[in-house]
Each structure stands twice: as C-alpha cells, then as structure tokens.
C-alpha cells in the first residue's frame, strides 16, 4: 500500500506537513520546530513514497518501519501519521498535553504508527538495526527507515549500532542523517565537530548518499537508490538540511531548536508556508 505521488505532489504534502508542525507546536506552546522542519522532506518522502504501511493496521507485521531516533522532532512524524489516517487530525491539537497519545517524545504504546519509543538520543539506530535484523531472520523484505540528528551522532551507541548493521549485512536499513549543523547549545562545529560525517558512515561499512536533504527530488532519488541497492551494505543518506527550513525567521537559527512561536510568528510562518505550494498540473 505504497502511495505513488509525483515530486510536485510530495512537495505540497511536505508544505502541509510543515504547517501542521507549526500549528501543533503553536497550540501546545511547546515543542521543537527547528529539527521538525529540517527533517520534514525525509519524513514526507518516506510516508508518501518509500514506505509500505497500512494506517488501519499500524502493527501489520510486514510493514516498513520508521524509527525517529531524533525523537524530539516527533511533530513531523505525528503530522505525517495524522495526514495518513492513523488517527484523526484533531488529535494533533493535543500534542504534549496530559493524556495525549502525542507525548513530547514518541511512545509506541500510546500513539498508533510509532514503531519504537524514542527520545533519549543515540538509541534509535540500534533499535532500527534490531528490526532490520528481525526481517532478515524471518526472510521478510520490509525496510527500516531511521532518522538521526547530526548532533545525535555524538553518542557512542550510534557507532556501536553501525557495527551491528554492517556485520549482519542489513541492506534493508536506510538511515538518514539530518545534517542541519545545529545542535542545542550551538553549531555542530562549536559543540562537537562531525568531521566528515559521510566518510564516517562509509568507514563503518555503509553505502552512503550525500544530498540536499531539503530538496524533494534528491530525497526521493536517494531513497529509490538506497532501496534498490541490494549489495549487503546498510545505507546512509547524508542530508544537508536547514534547521527551521521553510520559515525564514527560523532558518539556521539555533534559538529555534525547542521554542514555540508566538501569535505573530505563527501567522508569519503559516503565511510563508502557504506561499510554498507548487503547481502540480503538468505541462
């Protein structure tokens, strides 16, 4: 049950998703807009292009899996899940509120469509590797998509998990590094230089793809290549992105890591996003 949207349609879906991100964080007055926007193209391309899932049967055992290791950017995934029909759109208004399925960081037993609880950085990739390994053990052909933050690769467990992915030839594991170059306390270069993140994954045995992670054409192309490549190597798409992508005053601003917009900023952000829809009629 894969969707087959054109790139233009995916771009518009991504604008919808970003508007939902801004809207839910504004209503919650809490959340992480910067990284939710930088990863939005990847999330969109996964849910409406790459992944075979069934919103009416979230735990379908042959589904593709999505692990948001950078769990704080869950508004992007929650928006995708609501838009896909895993739950009603109105649930987005409950983000971070008491009793909500939409916890501040994803909880698999509260929110349909979340394949593993995340939130403590550095842990998602090992879980994703475990899922990919289960597919191999069971002779199933599902893929596991895992979104990492760039700052998150400071964590040693990421590199431990790479060892497992390589050893067990997890070619069905497709990692995306959201390389927006900003972490919580400052730029990656200031806090902990990434050196050459692509070469690092390559050295750990991954097939890598370096792209503009906010260019839908490139994201789709990289995903297609990664899924088609059956060479026994786990895949890593290094996506150069812009934190706060699509909202001018949030772009490349470290201060927009974990802050909600006020009313004026909210309207400006929504207006800017509204102007980003593209014409989907060919010719």
């Amino acid at each position: 049950m894969k969707d087959n949207l054109s790139v233009a349609e995916l771009k518009n879906k991504c604008v919808d998703l970003k508007k939902n991100v801004i809207d839910m964080i504004y209503k919650a007055q809490s959340g992480h807009p910067g990284g939710s926007l930088s990863v939005a193209d990847f999330v969109t391309a996964c849910y409406w292009h790459a992944m075979d899932v069934d919103p009416k049967n979230p735990r379908w055992e042959d589904r593709d899996r999505f692990v948001l290791s950078k769990g704080h950017t869950c508004p992007a995934q929650y928006a995708a899940l609501a838009m896909k029909g895993y739950f009603d759109m109105s649930v987005l208004n409950t983000l971070r509120k008491e009793g909500s399925p939409l916890q501040g960081h994803p909880s698999m037993n509260k929110c349909p469509g979340i394949d593993i609880s995340t939130g403590s950085l550095g842990q998602g990739l090992a879980c994703a590797a475990g899922m990919a390994l289960a597919a191999k053990l069971d002779g199933k052909d599902y893929n596991v998509f895992c979104a990492l933050g760039d700052g998150e690769t400071n964590e040693g467990e990421i590199w431990e998990a790479c060892g497992t992915a390589h050893k067990y030839k997890l070619e069905n594991l497709i990692v995306f590094v959201d390389w927006n170059n900003l972490q919580l306390d400052g730029t990656c270069d200031e806090i902990m230089p990434l050196i050459d993140i692509g070469k690092k994954f390559e050295a750990f045995g991954f097939e890598t793809f370096e792209i503009n992670g906010n260019c839908m054409e490139q994201v789709v192309d990289a995903l297609d290549q990664a899924m088609a490549s059956k060479n026994g190597l786990p895949k890593c798409i290094i996506g150069k992105t812009v934190k706060g992508n699509g909202v001018s005053f949030m772009e490349n601003q470290v201060g927009w890591h974990g802050v909600a917009p006020n009313e004026e900023q909210y309207h400006q952000a929504m207006d800017e996003l509204d102007r980003q829809y593209v014409n989907t009629v060919e010719g």
Partner: peptide, 15 residues
C-alpha cells in the same frame, strides 16, 4: 557494545 545490544534486542522484540 552493551548499549547497542539492548537496543538491538528491543528492535527484535518489536518484531
């Protein structure tokens, strides 16, 4: 790689 070991096991358990 004990930390990874725990995570891999969790991923397996979800399946």
């Amino acid at each position: 790689a004990e930390q990874n070991c725990a995570g891999v096991a969790a991923g397996l358990a979800t399946c």
